[in-house]
Amino acid sequence: MKGTIFVELLNMAEDAFGEDVVDMVLDKVNLENDGAFTSVGNYPCSDLVRIVTAFSEHSGISAEALQRKFGHWMMDHFSENYGEFFVGKENSFSLLEAIDGEIHVDVKKLYPDAELPVFETERLADKQLKLTYSSPRPLVEFCHGMVEACLDRYDEQAQIERDPATGRSNATEFDIRLKT
């Protein structure tokens, strides 16, 4: 998993809980690299889960809630640092639809070895998008948070329902209906 996720997770934690808490939690988790992550490195996803779990234990906030919050955080991080991905995207649907075809293509250029999740989209109606997220990693909540943040970014409100995709493991369908 890309280092930038870890770096930003720790940034978010620092922001939420303070530096000392982050130091303490990292000490507790006892990571192989002692929590020295760089955005250009690659790290095991299990480390991410362990860190999230540790923060959850420390704060009493559920791991799911933390993941979702982190989704929001990452969306902000992306829009601050990778503005080029957002150029020409007029609404949340067009951004979500561009993840696989544009954004991930570009990521692969920089990091050919990156293992990226897949985002399939299908416009069921003008204001209804089916987004199928598939990844072997247990980060559905993180994805959910990103979808919410994306809607927020465009000042859109939507009803989001999600279900495991039928007949496929490691895939989740998001049914996103925009509210008028």
Partner: peptide, 18 residues
């Protein structure tokens, strides 16, 4: 400095890719 180094590395990666 680390951020800059990372940016530099990404830049180089992009050049390498191209």
């Amino acid at each position: 400095a680390r951020h800059e180094a990372e940016q530099l590395l990404e830049g180089k990666s992009r050049e390498l890719f191209l």
